[in-house]
Design a protein around this nucleic acid. Structure first.
Lengths: 278, 278
DNA sequence: ACGCGCTAACTGATATATCAGAGAATGGGA
DNA sequence: TCCCATTCTCTGATATATCAGTTAGCGCGT
C-alpha cells in the first residue's frame, strides 16, 4: 500500500531515504506507488475525484459553514497526495464555496449579507438569460416537460413541510430543485451559459437553501407558475418571471441567514477539537 | 543553478544528483532560485505573477491562437518552477483562454463559432445586468463620467481607423475599451458581478477584438450613445441598449473570425482537428 | 493579576523527482 | 513504394520534500 509512507508525516522522523543510484536500477521502475486505481472512469483524475467528494461533503452539510480544512488531512482521508487536494480546493474557492488566506488556512466560506445579495444579482443575470433563451428556443415537448417538473417540485416541497425532515430526503429534493433550474439552461442550448450557472455562482444558493434556510413557506404552485411563464410567454415575459422568482428566493435566504450565529471565527482549530468527525 | 538539472531531461543521463545531507548545509538555503522579485506587491504569489504574465502574452498576441504551451518551458522563461505555472494554466483554462487534453498538451484556445456565440450570450447576461444596476444605482457624477469616457473611446477608435496600426497602441485602446465596460460594472456596486464580467467570459471578447477583428467600421458615436442610454434611461432601457450593443459586437467578431484561416491544428503536430465551421 | 513577547507547531507555498501515456519519427517488411 | 510496428522523446499527472509565515499556547516581567 502506498499510503504507508504518506501516513508517516510525523516531523521527528525526518530521515532522508534515498535510493542508491548504483543499486540494481536496470531500467528503473522501483516505485510501486499507485498501482490500484481500478475506478477506470477515464475523465476522473484524482483532482476531479477529490473535488467532487469535497463538494458533496459541503453540500450535504458534513462540513459545516465555518469549518477549517487542511490539505494534508484531506489528502490522508481521500487516500491521495497533496497536489490533487490543492487543485480541488482552488477550484472550490474559485466557485465561492471556500475561502482561504495565504498562510493561514482554508475554510468553508461564511457568506456575508453583501455576498449573498451580490451573488443573487449574478444569478439573476444568468438565469434570466436562460429563461429568455428557453422561451425562444425550447421545443414544445421540452416546455411541457418543464411544466411537469415544476409541478413535481412543488409537490416535493409540500411534502417537506409536512414534517418529515429527513436529512437525506432534503438533499435529494434540493438536487431535484437544482436540476429543475439547470434543465432550463440545458434547453436554452447554450452550454457556456449552462456551465456558468452550474459552476460559478448559483451553486451557493442551493447550498444555502439546504444549510441556512430551514422552513419554506412557498405557495403550492411556486415553481409551476414559473414553468408556465417560461413555457408560454415571450422572452421578455420569461425574463421578468425568472427575475421575480429569484428576488423572492433572495429574500428567503436573507431571512434564513439571520439565524446563522456569529460562530464564524476560528480559521484554525483549537488543539483539542482536532481530528473532528466529518 | 538548479535549472541545469531541469534542462537535462534527456533519458540516458538519468544520474541522480543529491545533496549530501551532511555537507556544509548549515541553515540550508541552497536555493538561489528567485531572488530578484523587486515588485514587492504583497498579494502576488508566483502563481499569480505567472498567471498575469501569460495572460498578457495571450492578450497582446505574443502567443497566437493555436500556440502550444509547455509547462516546463514556461517555467524556465518565467524563472519559476512547474507548480505555479500549472496553477496559472488551470486558471486560464477555466477562463476559456486555453484548452488542454489530458496527456497531450495545452494550447491557446481556438474558438469555434458556437463557442463565440455561447460566450456572447453569457456576456449579454452579465453586462445587461450591470447596465440595469448602473442606471439604477450610479450617482449623477459617475454617469457623466461614463459619457465622457464613451466619447473618448469613440475618438480613439476613429484614430485607429486613420491608419496608425501600431500594435502597442491597439493594445492600449483595447485596454481602455475593457476599462469602459468594467467601469459600468464598478458603478453598479456589485463586486461579484464585476468579478464575473472580468474573469469568466468577457475577457475573451476583448481578446478576439484585438486578435481576430482587424477593421472596425463603427459609427463615430458607437459608445457615446451606449453611455447616454445607460446614464439617462430606465433600467429596462439600459438593459436593451446594452443588449443591442453586445449583439452588434458579436456580429463583428463573427465576421472577423471568418478570416481566421484553418491554421489552428497542431497540439504538437496533429492532423485530426475538428473546428468544423467558422 | 495582567499584558507582552517568545517558542513551537501547523499551515500553505514552492521546488524537485518520478510516473505513465500519447504521438511522431524511423526502420523493416510486404 | 507504401504500410505497420517499434522506439524515443515529448507531454501532463502525481508524489514527496522543503521553505516561510502565521498563530496559538505559555512563561516571564511589571
Amino acid at each position: 500500500m502506498p499510503k504507508s509512507r504518506a501516513a508517516a508525516t510525523s516531523r521527528g522522523v525526518r530521515k532522508i531515504i534515498r535510493r542508491d543510484p548504483a543499486a540494481g536500477d536496470r531500467n528503473g521502475r522501483s516505485h510501486p506507488v499507485a498501482p490500484p486505481q481500478s475506478t477506470s472512469a477515464e475523465p476522473s483524475s484524482l483532482a476531479t475525484r477529490a473535488y467532487l467528494e469535497i463538494r458533496n461533503k459541503i453540500l450535504k452539510g458534513d462540513l459545516p459553514i465555518g469549518m477549517a480544512l487542511s490539505r494534508r488531512q484531506l489528502a490522508m482521508e481521500l487516500s491521495v497526495s497533496v497536489p490533487p487536494v490543492t487543485e480541488a480546493l482552488q477550484q472550490l474557492e474559485s466557485e465561492g464555496l471556500l475561502e482561504s488566506r495565504p498562510r493561514v488556512g482554508t475554510r468553508v466560506r461564511v457568506p456575508s449579507r453583501q455576498d449573498v445579495e451580490d451573488r443573487s444579482l449574478v444569478r439573476e443575470a444568468l438565469e434570466t438569460q436562460a429563461a429568455r433563451l428557453f422561451a425562444e428556443r425550447a421545443p414544445a415537448a421540452e416546455k411541457e416537460d418543464l411544466r411537469r417538473r415544476g409541478r413535481e417540485l412543488d409537490r416535493l416541497y409540500a411534502q417537506c413541510e409536512t414534517g418529515s425532515v429527513d436529512r437525506e430526503f432534503l438533499f435529494s429534493v434540493n438536487s431535484f430543485h437544482l436540476d429543475f433550474h439547470l434543465r432550463i439552461a440545458d434547453c436554452a442550448r447554450c452550454p457556456a451559459l449552462r456551465h456558468a450557472i452550474e459552476k460559478e455562482q448559483v451553486l451557493i444558493f442551493y447550498w444555502l437553501y439546504d444549510t441556512a434556510v430551514e422552513r419554506r413557506n412557498l405557495s403550492s404552485d411556486y415553481h409551476a407558475r414559473l414553468a408556465d411563464a417560461l413555457a408560454r410567454g415571450t422572452p421578455e415575459a420569461a425574463d421578468s418571471a425568472m427575475r421575480h422568482h429569484i428576488r423572492h428566493g433572495l429574500q428567503e435566504v436573507l431571512a434564513g441567514l439571520k439565524h446563522l450565529g456569529k460562530s464564524a471565527g476560528a480559521w484554525r482549530l483549537k488543539k483539542h477539537e482536532r481530528t473532528s468527525d466529518l
